[in-house]
Amino acid sequence: MEIINQNSVVREDRNVLVIAHLSQYLDYITGFGGLIVPLVLWLSLKEKVIGMDEHGKSIINFQLSLILYVIIGIPGILLFGLGIILLVLTGILSLVMPVVNAVRASNGEAPSYFGTIRFIS
């Protein structure tokens, strides 16, 4: 479906939303692509694809939250090993949540990332 809005075409493209969610796995390949690629997709397509603004903000908030959890978890290892628990939970979240939200995006539902701090609203 296309909506013409002030000389720009807004389209519904769920495949781009799914790719944005799954691009977070680039962290495991490159080490840094899981934040940069969704950020570029969000900034370039937020006004052209329906739902990209909401999904992009959720992805960026989730990635920033994961970075913060790792930064807190590493020195937390010295505090009775509690940082190890935080790092394990962060790893599980970073593996599971992008797939869950990619499926939600393909079904046309809103994203929902567990444990996300809202940096961008």
Rank of each mutant, 00 (worst) to 15 (best):
L35A: 10
V88K: 07
K46C: 05
L43C: 02
W42K: 04
L45C: 05
S94H: 11
R11S: 15
P75N: 08
F80P: 00
L39H: 02
G34N: 03
F119M: 09
T116K: 09
I3E: 15
L17Q: 12
I50F: 07
G73A: 11
I120F: 09
G31M: 13
G31P: 11
T116N: 07
Q6F: 08
P111S: 11
I117T: 15
Y25C: 05
S112K: 13
P98C: 06
P98A: 05
I50E: 10
E47A: 13
N61Q: 02
I59E: 03
I120M: 05
T116V: 15
Q24L: 10
F80Q: 03
G81M: 03
Y28V: 08
I59W: 01
S121A: 13
V99Q: 05
T90W: 03
E2C: 11
I36W: 04
G115N: 13
N7A: 14
E12I: 09
S112H: 09
L82I: 13
N7D: 14
V49C: 00
V49N: 00
G51R: 11
I59Q: 14
P38D: 09
A110I: 12
A20G: 05
S112R: 10
L39W: 07
M52I: 13
T30K: 04
A105C: 11
I72G: 03
